[in-house]
């Protein structure tokens, strides 16, 4: 395993404002790690410090064993970066744009052509390789950015808001490509405020709030921390009041109505079978009984509600 990125007490000051407030962060090899949080929480600043693109005010960060402050070229040679709404040279074709990057990376000419085409194929842009980037949609530009990382054969990919502004289909495709990077052994660090999309790809996430990491772990761990351990599920039934029917079922903690004929049940173990039996025997017709996966969105909303109350 081992860590590809290690930040210790990483600090960024803008004047007296703490944009990134002494965070500790480890990214493991081969995982997809999500940096989540509202805009202005310090996600992009953290990323820029890891790449040596902005000065570090305090603490330290190591990327693949290199210090981005003193060895930025070594870091940037091995790390692929897709900035927020990435730009390419519009008057050049997709292939020419990647050729320029290849020259900056000092990839030998004999290899560059093949690596560029392979990269474009992996993001399904091979058929438009000779088209000017000016004609590309936002989704295609993002994919071209991924192709650049693939061509670079980066060990770490840092993606800043990769899915923002994309339609659902383009988002789906892009997330699939991000999973592809992980399959190729690349550690992926991505930042986002689009939680449900991120939830589906991230192995671990960190929740940023005002420059600090508020929570860190897998989505389930976060849910347990914020929402409490439990088995929430949704019941839809007709002909009976579920709240009444479930009274006395062992393990059920709360039953909250959610609109017409729907209830949200919280239990400390899986009680769905017993609940179904109880509803049917009470004369109700059960139309839906769904286990609720803890959603990151819920964690997020709940966390920030509590943070605001605490403040």
């Amino acid at each position: 395993m081992g860590n590809v990125i290690e930040a210790r007490g990483l600090l960024k000051l803008y004047g007296s404002q703490r944009a990134v407030d002494a965070i500790d962060l480890d990214i493991h090899r081969g995982e997809i790690f999500g940096l989540l949080g509202p805009n202005g929480a310090g996600k992009t600043t953290t990323i820029l410090m890891m790449l040596g693109l902005t000065e570090i005010s305090g603490g330290s960060v190591q990327v693949l064993g290199f210090n981005p402050v003193s060895e930025p070229l070594e870091v940037k040679r091995r790390v692929g970066y897709l900035p927020d709404s990435v730009g390419f040279y519009d008057h050049m074709t997709a292939r020419e744009n990647l050729q320029y990057t290849a020259r900056l990376l000092d990839i030998p000419r004999s290899q560059a052509g093949r690596r560029i085409m392979e990269a474009l194929e992996s993001v399904k842009l091979a058929d438009v390789a000779g088209k000017r980037v000016a004609t590309f949609s936002r989704g295609m530009r993002q994919r071209l950015g991924i192709a650049e990382i693939v061509m670079k054969q980066a060990e770490v990919a840092i993606l800043d808001e990769p899915t923002s502004g994309l339609d659902p289909h383009a988002t789906f495709e892009l997330l699939e490509m991000i999973r592809g990077l992980r399959r190729a052994g690349v550690a992926v660090l991505l930042s986002s405020h689009l939680l449900d999309r991120v939830q589906s790809v991230c192995d671990r996430v960190a929740l940023f709030n005002k420059g600090k990491i508020a929570l860190m772990g897998t989505v389930v761990e976060l849910a347990n921390q914020v929402l409490g351990a439990g088995h929430p599920f949704l019941v839809e039934a007709q002909g009976t009041d579920v709240a009444v029917a479930l009274r006395g079922v062992e393990g059920v903690q709360t039953v909250v109505p959610e609109g017409e004929g729907a209830w949200r049940v919280m239990a400390d173990r899986d009680v769905r079978a017993a609940a179904a039996q109880r509803i049917v025997s009470a004369g109700g017709s059960l139309t839906r009984l769904a286990d609720l996966q803890p959603s990151l969105e819920e964690v997020y909303t709940r966390y920030f509600q509590e943070a605001r109350h605490a403040a």
């Binding site: 693109l53 970066y81 900035p83 390419f88 000092d106 950015g145």
Partner: peptide, 14 residues
């Protein structure tokens, strides 16, 4: 303005 600066500077170049 074309947002190419950060992408280019993330390549091994000062």
């Amino acid at each position: 303005n074309r947002r190419t600066l950060s992408r280019v500077l993330s390549q091994p170049i000062y």
